[in-house]
Simulated assay, not measured.
Amino acid sequence: MGTRRDFLGKMSLTALSLPILYSPTSLFAACEQPYDGPMLRVAIMGLGSYGTRVAKAMVDCKRAKLVGVISGTPSKILKWQATYDIPQKNCYNYDDFDAIKDNPDIDAVYIITPNALHCEQAIRVAKAGKHVICEKPMAINAEEAERMVNACKDAKVKLLVGYRMHFEPKTVEVIRMRQAGEFGQPKFFQGQSGFVMGNPNQWRLDKELSGGGAMMDIGIYSINGARYMLGEEPIWITAQETKTDPVKFKEGIDETITFQMGFPSGAVASCLSTYAMNHLDRFYMTGEKGWVEMRPSTGYGPIKGRTHKGELLQPHITHQTLQMDGMAQLIFEDVQPLVPVDGEEGLRDMKIIDAIYKAVKTGGKVDL
């Protein structure tokens, strides 16, 4: 999963041709400083609870603005028009949104619909010539994710994925510390991601819409967290599934999966993804020189964390505000976060999810 950072200070002439990285030390500057530059004009597709959260967060953005909506529910469109002063010409439904191609007032579409709809919707948005921001997981499998990546490349538009944690201040500081060698060689990561799923009739428990269960919703946080906390890509996966309520969690909807990942350096990760247990939002990583624990680690905030050097004290800023301002800066200025938020990043996670489901099914180790 915002406001964003200043450019790294004095760049060498050879570095000027490279993408600029956010400076963690000036992560919050965009929140405080006046901004007079291009505004990323965004239409949100999918006006449910998370779309509403993003819209509310964007009110505080300096570089991004909500200007349009796409929904299959006319009453929601009317409500959002009144709440966010959205003109009728920027309102679409799922059948006619291809017409955004002829709307110069929309730069990007943020897709916040059920997982199984992401692929085709993203391809349509790309063909309309608009940048694509897609909520995670970006698709229901790696094959679909790859189609999305290729479609956006062909259309010469950006494909970004809603990794709000890549902009979250304490998370960014931990990544900076790891990159600076302050933990030494990372050795072990533990990720616990879960909560008790309530309403049994929601789309997340419908395989045709969700593509899976807890792994496709909350488990992806431990997958992505392991990668950015350890700074490596896994080379093997093992996984085991536990299901205590087959009525609620039908075939194809995972309730609880524990999974393990191995990395080239020898580091290992042990993770839990579940819809059956509360109070599970914790990351822990230990290295040769130090350690970090974050709890809560991926909730909407405030994130809390401590390392061998003490408590993490970076301020809480609404994640989606930081994310959307950061994506605007990425699109307009090529200012890159420390960990990517592009389609290739999302595709890597989808390949791992595919491997986890394969490992559950086969009972063996899956090489990546």
Results as ranks from 00 to 15, higher is better:
Arg164Asp: 07
Ala328Thr: 11
Leu27Glu: 13
Thr171Leu: 12
Ala99Asn: 08
Met285Ile: 12
Ile218Lys: 03
Phe263Leu: 14
Arg53Ala: 14
Trp80Arg: 11
Pro340Ile: 00
Glu232Arg: 00
Ser270Arg: 09
Ile20Asp: 10
Leu205Asn: 06
Ile317Lys: 08
Thr113Arg: 02
His131Phe: 00
Ile44Trp: 02
Asn224Lys: 02
Ser23Arg: 08
Leu272Thr: 14
Ile317Trp: 10
Val69Ala: 11
Gly48Asn: 03
Ile303Asn: 00
Gln190Lys: 10
Ala328Phe: 11
Glu168His: 09
Asn201Tyr: 07
Phe7Asn: 06
Val109Lys: 05
Phe283Val: 06
Gln336Ser: 04
Asp281Lys: 09
Ala82Lys: 15
Ile253Lys: 13
Ala145His: 06
Pro104Cys: 04
Thr256Asn: 14
Ile317Gln: 13
Ile317Thr: 11
Val161Ile: 15
Ile317Glu: 13
Gln240Cys: 04
Asp85Leu: 10
Gln33Ile: 11
Ser273Trp: 07
Ile112Val: 15
Tyr94Met: 12
Ala64Val: 00
Tyr35Pro: 11
Ala180Lys: 15
Val42Pro: 03
Tyr300Gln: 14
Ala214Tyr: 02
Pro296Ser: 08
Lys65Gln: 15
Gly181Trp: 11
Lys187Thr: 02
Met216Asp: 01
Lys170Glu: 14
Thr171Met: 15
Ala82Leu: 12
Met11Asp: 00
Val292Leu: 05
Leu8Gln: 12
Asp154Leu: 10
Pro296Met: 06
Pro87Trp: 07
Arg53Gly: 02
Gly301Pro: 08
Arg204Pro: 02
Leu40Asn: 06
Ser12Ala: 07
Ala29Thr: 13
Thr242Ala: 12
Ile257Met: 13
Leu66Asn: 02
Arg306Ala: 13
Asp154Gly: 01
Lys101Ala: 15
Pro74Tyr: 12
Gly310Tyr: 04
Tyr94Asp: 03
Ile303Lys: 00
Arg147Pro: 00
Tyr284Ile: 06
Glu208His: 11
Asn224Ser: 11
Gln320Trp: 13
Pro264Met: 12
Ser265Val: 12
Tyr275Asn: 10
Val196Met: 11
Ile112Ala: 07
Met277Ser: 12
Leu21Lys: 12
Thr25Ile: 09
Leu21Asn: 10
Glu168Pro: 01
Gly191His: 01
Glu120Met: 03
Lys289Cys: 03
Arg5Phe: 09
Phe7Trp: 05
Val149Ile: 05
Gly46Ala: 04
Ser75Gln: 14
Thr362Trp: 04
Ala29Ser: 15
Lys65Pro: 00
